[in-house]
Amino acid sequence: MNKKGVERKFAAVVVAAIICFSLSVNRVQAQDVATGAATATVLAALSVIAAQNLIFGNIYQGVASTVANNINASSGIFNILGQGSAGISISFVLPQFIALADGSDRMTIGFSSTDATVDSNNTTPATVVAGDGWINTNPNNLPAATVIGAAGQTNVYLGGRVYPSVDQAAGAYSGDIILTVAYNGT
């Protein structure tokens, strides 16, 4: 083959190669982008309601009065609402006294280590049984394994005892009982 023939062949190959390269460049992506997702489902919010105060009613100077935790009409009742079967941490802040509205006199109040009941089956203070939760447990150290009932509610019942002095001033006494609840993630 002479020199001109070789050059023509070479030129033809170069042209073919350029076409081939152009096609191949089109096939190879410069970059790729993909979009994944982050997802979460937030469960029901937690709330607590003081459904009924702890009611001692009328009491006499010098005569201590007790309200048990299983009295429908007078035990303290708290309703905790949230995600069914979720684990929660619950704790009371209990008063050491109750007072007249103007603060002029105070009356001692006490809570024993059996004054609380935790009911995850939403019965009533008078009808709760052991299988519903924890009966007669310590209000200052409520059970760590407490859960919201399967129906989305757990109740806490509270009793207590007041000790009026012999010269206790007459009038209406009150004090705050605070129940704090939080999901513990279980």
Binding site: F21, S24, T35, G36, A37, T41, A44, L46
Partner: peptide, 28 residues
Amino acid sequence: FFLIAASSAAQTITVNNNLVFGDMFPGV
């Protein structure tokens, strides 16, 4: 040169799994 250029493979991304937090409690 052109044979090598033509043989380059494109890169592709596949999402095998999303980032899944699942059920979450408020405040936790």
